[in-house]
């Protein structure tokens, strides 16, 4: 079969094309690899920052619950008794804080000293005394509302 002169297989052009292809492939792999590493680092940074934000919120919420919330027992002179907690009022405190903050879901519960975190969320605890004069752990757990 005859081939016209302008349709002849050009070995030189073909070589250049293959050469370019083989050069571009590792560069593309490198770029894809870098983008993947960047995505991983970014996700890690976002997770760390979110964890810090949530931790700070939990610390503030726990401090409010222990010192100023409705669950804090009031003595006969009308003074708040920080760290003295009425367990029966904790659910309303939980509800109030949850209503005020839409970004996080939190859960406040009172447990024995030896009791571990009540769920898989990020939790902190404070030491409080219940109305029976028992020292207990007040767990404040939370997570992002959209997670």
């Amino acid at each position: 079969m005859s081939v016209s002169s302008n349709q002849q297989f050009n070995f030189k052009k073909a070589f250049i094309t293959y050469d370019a292809l083989l050069s571009i492939m590792p560069i593309m792999f490198l770029i894809v690899f870098i983008i993947q590493v960047m995505a991983y680092i970014n996700n890690d940074a976002i997770y760390t920052l979110q964890k810090r934000e949530l931790f700070n919120f939990l610390v503030a919420a726990a401090d409010y619950t222990v010192k100023k919330s409705d669950a804090v027992v009031v003595d006969s002179l009308g003074n708040l008794q920080p760290n003295l907690i009425d367990e029966s009022k904790l659910s309303s405190v939980n509800k109030n804080i949850s209503m005020g903050v839409s970004k996080f879901k939190i859960n406040i519960s009172l447990n024995d000293l030896t009791y571990g975190p009540p769920n898989d969320q990020i939790c902190i605890y404070r030491l409080v005394v219940d109305t029976n004069k028992e020292i207990k752990k007040l767990y404040v757990c939370g997570e992002y509302a959209n997670s």
Partner: peptide, 28 residues
């Protein structure tokens, strides 16, 4: 992302826990 300010700071929380122990001892 590796700098300290991105990680949780536990100092205030530890201070609060220490104060809790004092208050619990006092209240009981």
């Amino acid at each position: 992302s590796q700098m300290d300010y991105t990680k949780p700071n536990y100092e205030l929380y530890r201070y609060q826990l220490a104060n809790d122990i004092w208050r619990c001892l006092y209240l009981t």
